[in-house]
């Protein structure tokens, strides 16, 4: 019997090595798998490269991992936002490397990695400093910049409901980068707000089929505990 659910955060993160490239889902705090991110502090991996849309806020989740000195480099589209204090401190002190990628290019580079596409052309960044040093090419008289697929060793994502095969659905705007990153990494670890019995997710509505998922750990969403598990579909 296939069962991708593991008992706890430690089992979920087993094997994440020093220097790993880690995708972290979420947009701001919505859909961000905070328990898995903070679990990396206990787990101990160092020298990480993190791919995420934002660079954390406050002192929880990604910001906490950053503050613990575990992140060497962050690849993101929007590092500076309300409450991104830890990022700003470390970046100013030269303790964090930053690669800025436009949000749509970031999503597509991750999707390309998951879809076996090594590179693609996009009109985004043409005529700007972010296109410097990049190969460009003209198609039908319009200029495009070549962007490479962005691979990762691990994706940490948050899903709303999962079954033991790893099928996932998301909640509202919590889908964001999670469904894309699930495809883009060699190993995908899901922080699930709740497991449902096999067969209880509507096959028409499954967003991430279990083929993209390796491990699941359940971390109930306390803020939404009034939403019944059986109401998954």
């Amino acid at each position: 019997m296939i069962n991708k659910e593991v008992r706890n955060i430690a089992d979920a993160l087993e094997g994440v090595s020093n220097g790993a490239v880690v995708m972290v889902g979420g947009f701001g705090s919505v859909g961000q798998p905070d328990a898995l991110i903070e679990g990396l502090i206990e787990q101990g991996a160092r020298d990480l490269t993190v791919i995420a849309n934002n660079a954390g806020s406050g002192r929880v989740g990604l910001a906490k991992l950053m503050e613990a000195g575990r992140i060497r480099k962050i690849i993101c589209s929007f590092p500076r936002s309300a409450g991104s204090v830890v990022f700003e401190e470390l970046f100013r002190a030269g303790k964090l490397e930053l690669e800025i990628v436009p949000q749509g290019t970031l999503a597509e580079r991750i999707r390309a990695a998951g879809a076996g596409i090594p590179a693609f052309y996009t009109p985004t960044t043409v005529g700007t400093i972010l296109a410097k040093g990049k190969e460009s090419r003209s198609f039908d008289g319009k200029t495009y910049v070549m962007e490479h697929a962005l691979h990762a060793d691990i994706a940490l994502i948050e899903a709303w409901r999962t079954d033991r095969l790893g099928n996932c659905i998301y909640r509202e705007s919590g889908r964001n980068f999670n469904a894309v990153m699930a495809m883009g990494a060699r190993k995908t670890i899901v922080q699930s707000c709740g497991m449902v019995e096999l067969g209880n997710l509507d096959p028409e509505a499954i967003v991430t089929p279990g083929i993209f998922v390796d491990r699941i750990v359940v971390v109930p969403d306390t803020a939404n505990s009034d939403v019944a598990l059986e109401g998954a579909v």
Binding site: A55, S77, F78, P79, R80, S81, S84, F87, E88, F91, R92, L98, I100, V101, P102, Q103, G104, T105, T122, P123, T124, T125, V126, T128, I129, L130
Partner: peptide, 18 residues
């Protein structure tokens, strides 16, 4: 500036391109 400490491009470049 080109040396902006933490530039925040987000989706702006994709939006104006598309």
């Amino acid at each position: 500036s080109e040396r902006d400490n933490a530039p925040a491009v987000g989706g702006a470049m994709d939006l104006v391109a598309g």
